[in-house]
Structures are given as structure tokens and as C-alpha cells.
Design a protein around this nucleic acid. Structure first.
Length: 817
RNA sequence: GCCGAAGUGGCGGAAUGGCAGACGCGGCGGUCUCAAACACCGCUGGGCUCAAACCCAUGUGGGUUCGAAUCCCACCUUCGGCACCA
């Protein structure tokens, strides 16, 4: 132990990585009596290198997994690769690479870098979503959802990304642009495959029994956008017959104020109600609307425009004749694509009515509004109904219910709930994804591929020319198959599945990753699921994190998993910024390369420095010069083990008691920090304790027992964040391999308690003096000591003490006149 | 506009009703050294031209409280999300 060699991360890190791998130290056995803990970090898309953001995420997740392992849990902490997706295919288009080979190379690189960072994954459970053994089951899931009516094919307005040459789900459109390529998305009417996400919309709002950040829950809740209202039917005369124009409204109580109707330019009724005189204007408006991008059309700054169709509807409540307009502020994709416009009580309708000189009829009274005069703006709240026939005088609080009840009683409409969220569009016109296991037969329409024929393998030797159609359509020998029902000529579905489907169930596959018979066994699912702790970026709030909840609920209803939610606790790490406080990007030149930092200081130092930046959920700027402090600390910890210490045996000495108190306090605080992912303060407490130990050592002989306790505790508490140096020091301190399966140190509250406490003396809330009192001192003792303090006495001159406020062991406030 | 998070030294941050600025970086001074450092020690919010004492200070303005960075109200700023959703 006297070997005073210096801390050299490059000597010890590869050594222990090899040892851990050879020993399968981090394997999670299925047959283990300890309580289970499923720690999951979102798996990466394997592109290029593990970047600093990956390190930031996985350093924290790994530290928590290690902490739980030391707490005595049988920790399942797996890793895999979300390997289907566009970058591989784009590399194929650009450089002629084979997507499978390109992906394989990247995965190997990622795996190497994961090992270099000293992560504690159970690699025996690795899954790769582009592997046929995995996507066989992704296809299987599709068939199960199809069989349960949760997958269907339909024509709808879809988001088309011209850059990616495929449709996208709504969740993948951010501000009118493609989430991946940033191209402006176009709207196309296409027949596509969907998952019936809306079937679970209400349950997805519940978040039953899970601890997820408020931010994510709010984003999902807003995205789902539940609104209660009513569906009302307005009769319309079309070609001599009466049809119903259905509108969704959250304000059925304003129906008497409906002075016109607005339907989306794409609404199916437009052609049939347009009168010959309005035909040219309507056609021109529709043409113009169709040419707009989603971004242009979504702009709220834009002045509202529209055209009268010449058609009229009848208000079913009062028989009023109501003109029907088309306008692009009404979206064909929401509600029924048609609204009743109530200018008096809806600002958008008010603006439209003002522009086109349409009437506004107030149907509520309002204390601040004179409704007998023309309105300056719409007002949404009111006191009681007015201008509403038999409903006049109805208080606002009862208005909606009464109007809705009337509609239902008369067959005019009914109360309903509408959602902003739409079904999940899952088909993609791309190659590098799991083929949708369906066959189109001229005789039998759509026929599922029999489960025994799975997987439907991706063909090789494909030409990757972006045509707007899946490259699979060009491969005749793949496309042409016999119909599973009658063996007649049929064609495969050529679209592939959205890669978010692969990641919707991967946490299930980890529990039984090599099962050739089923996606996973019930027994193992029951043992390991759900995930106890999940971590990943908040950018997946309404994509992956919503989809996997939907998927789980469907799986639950199939009897495959138990419980209502897939991940009990979620933690979102923040975004690590460049040293300049800006988002890291090549163009800004502020990218921190992990390999460089590791080459300079080692993986342990880099991990610690990343976690020392600030609270993990907050992210923040990376400080490369701050690395010096971490490196200094690691050297100090090293020297505590390797430098000479003079020992005595004096367990009752003040020095021994002080050291033990510091050790036990540190254990208490570090444990709390580890539970709550507060790695920055965890490190600062360990730094403080290392410095204290060093001072104790340099001050003279220390008690052998107290020193050994302090040293072992320090090494154990370093292990989650700095696994290599901890393992090395653990061995050098004469302990048994491995520190990473050693029990986390426990603290003794009696030993952590202070013998003396410093009590702050305040006069009228201002600090005037401090006292050192025995920990067991009473309030009376504190008062007596305070009154004896000369400093306090000065401030009491000529004053009368009115009150004493005493916070035991902390503070005494004297309130004076 | 709506929803969410946040504003504290030169910098990252700590303290969530009780000593504001832990820990670290940077800076200043010193020790060791031929010289240095990833070594060690000390100082480091502002004012009062040393110090002590005192005063001021946690985005701004009010309030609650014996006591507020922390709770409440109003406002300003920044970041993230949604955005004509009827």
C-alpha cells in the first residue's frame, strides 16, 4: 500500500474494463432472490460517435444503476440500439453504403465507446432493432394490433416531408417542419396505416401511479388536447335533399349567436353547396389554400380570409338561415372540419365577421359590456343567456348542460369529447425499417402475413433512389407473393414501419432478449416489468414517451403485461451546452469531443466533470477548465490511499470522533443526493470529505479504525461516478473485488450527530452573534447564553424584549421593541 | 396568446421559511522548488480609500412573517413546448 505511484487513468481504466467484461460483473440474473430494479436509459440511434450529450445522459444513468446495485438490488440495466432509421438510408443514397453494414459499423463503434466510459450495462441482453430476430417481433406486434382493431388503413391528410420523401406522424412535425430534416412539410391526401392512439386518449391523460416530471405530463396533456363540448347538426339543403352539417363546439350555449358557418376549404360538402355564382371564387380560394405550406397556413398573425359558398344551413334551435363560408382558419383535420361561427363570443369569428360585414349577436349578458351597442371585441364569459329564445335568463354555469340536453332530446346533437391528438400514422415510404407484414390480394383485399411466415425480411441489393415511393416497390421478386388465403398472385405492402414502433416495446424485449418463440415470456415480464427508473431527453415528450405508453396499454389489454404504465419514474436530463453557453454544433465550433477529454483526463474525470456541471435535469454549459478541480480531487483521493499515514489506536479521541462524525454525515448526505440524481452536490460533499481526511492525516497520527471507515466509505461513494479509480483504490485499500457489488455504506445517526451546535443570535432578525452550545442545550440555556453575550447586549440597550423565537440547535431571535 | 421551467459573485452553481454565496473554476498573495505543476496554504459579492464594526446585496416593485433567495400579488427578462384546435 505504500507504493506511491501516481494516479494514471490510462493504466487502470482499460484494465478494469476488461476484468468487468470477463467476469460479467453487471449481468442481471433472472433467478436471483434479491429485489429487482429495472433501470433504463433511452437507447441511442447509432450514428457516428457517442457524443458529449450521450455521455452526459449515460453518466448519470449509469451512476444511478450502480448506486441501486450497491443498495442490494438485482439491477437490470440493459443497452441496445435503435438501429432502423433514415441516416443509414441517406448514407446509402449519398455514398452507396449498405445500410445494414453502415449500421453494424456504427454499432460496433458505439459499443466500444460505451465500454470506454466504464458503463455497467448487461451486454448479454443487447437488442438491435434492425436485426431480423428483433423486427420479427415488431411485425408480430403489428399483427396483434391489427387483429384487435388498433391498426387500420385509411385515407387522410398526411404530412409529407419532401426531404425525407415519406409521410410523417403529427408528432414528427415541429412547427410545420420535419423533426429530422427540418424541411417544410406538405399536406397530401394519402392512404396510410395508422394505430388507433385515440382509443386510449383518455387513459393517456391519467398518468396513473407514475412519477413523471410535470413538464412532460403537461406537454402530453396539451398534445392530447381533450376538449368537452357538443356535436351539433345543422340541416343543409343539398341538391334538393336535406343533409346534416355537423360541427363540434365547446360552446353549445352560444348556438343562438351563430350568424354564419365556416367549413374548411377541403371539406367534402364544399363542392355540393357552392352555388354557380360563387363557383369561381370558391375554386380560386381552394386552389390558393392548397398551395400554401402548413407554416403559412398556421400563422396566427395572418389576417383571416374566406369566401361565401352561396349555400345556407339552418340553425336547428331557432330555424335561422345561416350562410356557409369557407375559410382556411378552419382545419379539416380537427373536429368535423366545420364550425358554427359566433362572432360575439369568439375572437377569431369576430375578426372574420368584422372583415366581411357579418352580424354579431351577443347571447350572454356581461357586467362590463353594453350588448345593445356594436361590440368592440368578442367576450367569452358572461352572466346569463340572452337572445336565446326559451333559454333566456339561464345562468352561465348551467347554460352548456341545458343546451346540450335540449339538443339530445331533440336529436339535434349530443354532448361529446374531442381530441387534438390524432391516430398515429405509422407507415413510411422508406427502405430501412421493418416491412409492414401485410399482403394486398385482388380477391381478398388486405391479408395479414401468417405469423409463421415472420419475419418479412428486408430484401438486399436495393436501389435507393428517392422516388416518393418505398424502394421496396421496385423489387418484383420481393413484392410478388402468393396470397396467403388462395395462393393467387398478390403483392406485399411496401411501406415500412415508423421506427418509433421499434422503440415502443424495446423495454419489454430486454427482459427476454433471445426468446425465439415469443417476444418475451410471461414469467420474465412479470419478474422485471415495468421499468422502475427511466431516463432520457425531454425532446421525446410527445413522441416516444407517448407512443410507448399507448403500446403498453394495448399490450396490457392483450394480457401480455401487467400494470397500467410502462415506466414508473421518469427523469429527463437537461441539455449539455458548449462552453459558450450555446447549443453544441459543428457550425458554432463549440463541440466538446469525448474522446479528446478521455485521452487527456480519463473517463472517470470526464464523467465526474459532466455531472459536476449542475443539476442533472438542468443541463448547462460544459466548462473544460473546470476539469482541473475534478482531476485535483481524484489525485487527492488517490493519495489518501497511497500516501503514508501515521496511525494510533485511539477510538475515543476527539480526532477519531470528529472524523467519524464527518464520515457518517457525508454518507447520509451523499445517499440522499444519489437517490435524487443530485450528482453535483454529491461530488461536492465527497470533495469536502476528502479534504477533511487529508487535513486530519497531515495534522498528525489518526485513529486507525476511524481512518479505515472514512477511507472505505469514500471509495464506495465514489464508485457510481468514478467506477475505475474506485475499483483500483478499493483493491489497494485491501478490500475484496469488486467495489461495484459491495454494499453501499450505511450511516449511524448517533455518530453523525454534532456534539456542539452553533446557534445564531439575532436581534430583530439580524445576526449579531453566534454561540457554541452543547447539542443537548435547551431553549432556556440558549436564552441565558444569549443575554450574556456582550454583542447582543449592545443591541438590547434601552430596548424591551418582546419575544424569543428559538429554532433548536440553529437560531435564537430576540424580538425587541 | 396559452402551458411549463428558470433569473443568486467575474463564471458553473449551493442554500426551498432561519448564518446568502457550500463545492469547483477563474483571480490575487504566499510555501515548496534550479524552475514548474494535475502539489500545498491563505484571501477573493459591493460600500465605508487597512482591519473591526456597520450598511447594502439573490431580475423589478409591493405584501405576508420575529425572520424571505425561498411563500403570496403584480411586472420584466430568458429558455423549452404548443399555437387560428372551434
Amino acid at each position: 500500500m505504500i507504493v506511491a505511484d501516481r494516479y494514471d487513468p490510462h493504466a487502470i481504466e482499460p484494465k478494469w474494463q476488461a476484468r468487468w467484461e470477463a467476469d460479467k460483473l453487471y449481468r442481471a440474473p433472472d433467478d436471483d432472490p434479491r429485489p429487482k430494479w429495472y433501470e433504463l436509459a433511452m437507447f441511442p440511434y447509432p450514428s457516428g460517435d457517442l457524443h458529449t450529450g450521450h455521455w452526459y445522459h449515460y453518466s448519470g444513468a449509469d451512476a444511478h444503476a450502480r448506486y441501486m446495485r450497491m443498495q442490494g438490488y438485482n439491477v437490470l440495466y440493459p443497452m441496445g440500439f435503435d438501429a432502423f432509421g433514415l441516416p443509414a438510408e441517406n448514407a446509402a443514397i449519398k455514398h452507396g453504403a449498405d445500410p445494414a453494414a453502415w449500421t453494424k459499423t456504427n454499432i460496433e463503434n458505439f459499443r466500444r465507446q460505451f465500454k470506454m466510459m466504464g458503463s455497467s450495462f448487461d451486454w448479454d441482453r443487447e437488442v438491435v432493432t434492425s436485426d431480423p430476430d428483433y423486427y420479427k417481433w415488431t411485425q408480430w406486434w403489428f399483427l396483434q394490433l391489427y387483429n384487435r382493431g388498433l391498426a387500420y388503413r385509411a385515407a387522410a391528410a398526411a404530412n409529407w416531408c419532401p426531404g425525407c420523401q415519406t409521410v410523417l406522424a403529427n408528432e414528427q412535425v415541429v412547427g410545420g417542419r420535419c423533426e429530422r430534416s427540418d424541411d417544410v412539410v406538405e399536406r397530401r391526401f394519402l392512404t396510410q396505416w395508422f394505430f388507433r392512439l385515440t382509443a386510449y386518449a383518455d387513459e393517456l391523460l391519467e398518468f396513473k401511479g407514475i412519477e413523471w416530471p410535470e413538464r412532460i405530463r403537461a406537454m402530453q396533456t396539451n398534445w392530447i388536447g381533450r376538449s368537452e363540448g357538443a356535436l351539433l347538426r345543422f340541416p343543409v339543403e343539398v341538391d334538393g335533399a336535406v343533409e346534416q352539417l355537423a360541427v363540434f363546439t365547446t360552446r353549445p350555449d352560444t348556438v343562438y349567436g351563430a350568424t354564419f358557418m365556416v367549413i374548411a376549404p377541403e371539406h367534402a360538402l364544399v363542392d355540393r353547396i357552392t352555388t354557380p355564382g360563387q363557383r369561381d371564387a370558391v375554386d380560386a380560394y381552394r386552389e390558393a389554400a392548397s398551395r400554401q405550406t402548413e407554416i403559412e397556413r398556421m400563422s396566427t398573425e395572418k389576417e383571416k380570409t374566406g369566401v361565401f359558398t352561396g349555400g345556407y344551413a339552418t340553425n336547428p334551435f331557432n330555424g335561422a338561415r345561416v350562410p356557409i363560408w369557407i375559410a382556411d382558419y378552419v382545419l379539416v383535420t380537427y373536429g368535423t372540419g366545420a364550425i358554427m361561427a359566433v362572432p360575439a363570443h369568439d375572437q377569431r369569428d369576430f375578426e372574420f365577421a368584422t372583415k366581411y360585414a357579418l352580424d354579431a349577436i351577443p347571447v350572454f349578458t356581461h357586467p362590463d359590456v353594453d350588448i345593445t351597442r356594436p361590440l368592440a371585441a368578442a367576450f367569452s364569459d358572461g352572466l346569463a343567456m340572452v337572445n336565446s329564445g326559451p333559454f333566456d335568463g339561464t345562468p352561465a354555469a348551467e347554460a352548456k348542460a341545458r343546451v346540450t340536453a335540449h339538443a339530445e332530446a331533440n336529436g339535434i346533437g349530443e354532448g361529446t369529447v374531442n381530441y387534438r391528438v390524432r391516430d398515429w400514422l405509422i407507415s413510411r415510404q422508406r427502405y430501412w425499417g421493418a416491412p409492414i407484414p401485410m399482403i394486398h390480394c385482388p380477391e381478398h383485399a388486405i391479408v395479414p402475413v401468417p405469423e409463421s411466415d415472420l419475419p418479412v425480411r428486408l430484401p438486399e441489393n436495393v436501389t435507393f433512389e428517392p422516388t416518393g415511393q418505398s424502394p421496396l416497390t421496385l423489387i418484383d421478386e420481393w413484392v410478388n407473393v402468393p396470397c396467403p388465403i388462395d395462393g393467387g398472385p398478390a403483392r406485399r405492402e411496401t411501406d415500412t414501419l415508423d421506427t418509433f414502433m421499434c422503440s415502443s416495446w424495446y423495454q419489454m424485449r430486454y427482459v427476454d432478449p433471445h426468446n425465439p418463440e415469443r417476444p418475451f415470456s410471461q414469467a420474465l415480464a412479470h419478474k422485471w416489468l415495468p421499468v422502475d427508473q427511466y431516463s432520457g431527453g425531454a425532446d421525446h415528450a410527445v413522441m416516444h414517451l407517448l407512443y410507448t405508453r399507448f403500446f403498453w396499454k394495448a399490450a396490457r389489454d392483450m394480457g401480455l403485461v401487467e400494470g397500467d404504465e410502462p415506466m414508473l419514474r421518469l427523469f429527463n436530463q437537461g441539455t449539455l451546452l458548449g462552453p459558450d453557453g450555446q447549443k453544441m454544433s459543428k457550425s458554432r465550433g463549440n463541440v466538446v469531443a469525448p474522446d479528446g477529454e478521455v485521452a487527456k483526463h480519463g473517463a472517470d474525470a470526464f464523467r465526474c466533470q459532466l455531472m459536476f456541471v449542475g443539476p442533472w435535469d438542468q443541463g448547462g454549459p460544459y466548462n473544460p477548465t473546470g476539469m482541473a478541480g475534478i482531476v485535483r480531487w481524484l489525485h487527492r483521493a488517490w493519495s489518501l490511499v497511497t500516501d503514508h499515514v501515521s496511525f494510533v489506536t485511539a477510538p475515543d479521541s476527539e480526532g477519531a470522533r470528529d472524523l467519524r462524525r464527518a464520515t457518517h454525515k457525508t454518507i447520509r448526505e451523499v445517499s440522499e443526493d444519489a437517490e435524487q440524481f443530485r450528482f453535483n452536490t454529491l461530488i461536492s460533499r465527497l470533495m469536502e470529505h476528502s479534504s477533511l481526511m487529508q487535513r486530519a492525516r497531515d495534522a498528525g497520527a489518526v485513529d486507525r479504525g476511524a481512518w479505515k471507515e472514512a477511507l472505505d466509505a469514500t471509495i464506495l461513494m465514489m464508485a457510481p461516478l468514478a467506477p475505475h479509480i474506485a475499483e483500483e483504490l478499493w483493491a489497494r485499500a485491501g478490500n475484496r473485488y469488486s467495489v461495484h457489488v459491495a454494499p453501499w455504506p450505511s450511516f449511524d445517526p448517533a455518530l453523525a450527530r454534532d456534539e456542539q451546535v452553533e446557534v445564531v443570535l439575532q436581534v430583530n432578525g439580524k445576526v449579531r452573534d453566534r454561540l457554541l452550545l452543547p447539542a443537548e442545550a435547551t431553549e432556556a440555556d440558549a436564552r441565558e447564553a444569549a443575554l450574556a453575550s456582550p454583542r447582543v447586549q449592545e443591541w438590547l440597550q434601552g430596548k424591551e424584549i418582546r419575544r424569543f423565537i428559538y429554532v433548536p440547535g440553529k437560531l435564537l431571535n430576540l424580538v425587541v421593541s
